[in-house]
Design a protein around this nucleic acid. Structure first.
Length: 260
DNA sequence: AATGATCTCAACCGCTGGTAG
DNA sequence: GCTACCAGCGGTTGAGATCAT
């Protein structure tokens, strides 16, 4: 569509950045701020395309970037989020302070994808719990009325329509049988994610059906109806629950913000 | 020590979504 | 509504590092 090809200009530097180029970029951004990547190279006096500058800044030069040594906790978080979100590296990176999407993508492709594909039986030498391995590897079972088997595809995180959000209080007012229904096949949420019902996607995080009867009063999060540690974990993973402030119910707006 | 195989990760490429005109 | 531009995303590449023989 007549789009200007990036980096096609003759005379632009390509490949690895030099220390001097890094200095120029950092000092320019420190002085003028991020943004306007298209014109930044010209204004900063860099022989690079805007995309290259943006990438260099975001993945390497930005303050607060952690490099290397991805911890076990971070690794587990990546696996869990990947099982939920798929290759949405920027979203996953958003839950890992100091990590970039590029780094997580690389780490997944070179290390974690192999680990996760290891058969779960036998020893647990990969460092993941068996449950975690299953969650990461297995696709959730499609709901009966699921639209087209777009299988293996994780959540499409762009919520198109939110039809129902059942408050935990409402759940608690239901009978035990109703609670069972609510927490059985789906969680108490009906978010239409481009044809995919969010509830079933979260179902694998639930414990067994036996857990349902144990629903207590202490969990009041968005996924409170399923009343499992996994649900609580998921809320934290998605930023829907502040680990320090148990009991806070996120608003729908919070929920959407957490996804988008 | 030499050499080929494998791994890692920074950078590039092409595409999409948002938006201003 | 159409077009063009910009920002951002995810897949891929390739140079350098590391490992195995």
């Amino acid at each position: 569509m007549g789009r200007k090809p990036c980096c096609s200009k003759e005379g632009l530097n390509r490949g690895a950045w030099t220390a001097m180029e890094d200095d120029i970029l950092v000092s320019y951004i420190n002085k003028h701020g991020e943004g306007k990547w298209g014109s930044l190279p010209r204004r900063a006096g860099l022989q690079r395309c805007g995309k290259s500058c943006r990438l260099r800044w975001l993945n390497y030069l930005r303050p607060g970037i952690k490099r290397g040594n991805i911890s076990g906790d971070e690794e587990e978080l990546i696996v869990r989020l990947h099982g939920l979100l798929g290759n949405r590296w920027s979203l996953i990176a958003g839950r890992l302070p100091g990590r970039t999407d590029n780094e997580i993508k690389n780490y997944w492709n070179t290390t974690l994808s192999k680990k996760v594909l290891l058969p779960p039986q036998g020893s647990n030498h990969s460092g993941f719990s068996n449950q975690l391995q299953l969650q990461a590897v297995a696709s959730p079972p499609p709901p009966e009325d699921a639209a087209p088997p777009d299988t293996g595809s994780p959540i499409r995180t762009k919520a198109l329509r939110c039809t129902t959000l059942m408050a935990p209080a409402a759940v608690q007012e239901t009978t035990p049988d109703e609670q069972h229904d609510l927490a059985g096949d789906h969680l108490c949420i009906d978010l239409d994610l481009d044809g995919i019902e969010l509830g079933f996607l979260f179902s694998p995080w639930r414990g067994g059906a036996d857990d349902v009867g144990a629903a207590g009063d202490h969990d009041h999060g968005l996924f409170g109806a399923c009343e499992t540690d996994q649900a609580a974990d998921l809320e934290e993973l998605l930023g829907l629950r502040d680990s320090d402030s148990h009991g806070a119910v996120p608003s729908l707006g919070d929920f959407e913000l957490a996804w988008l």
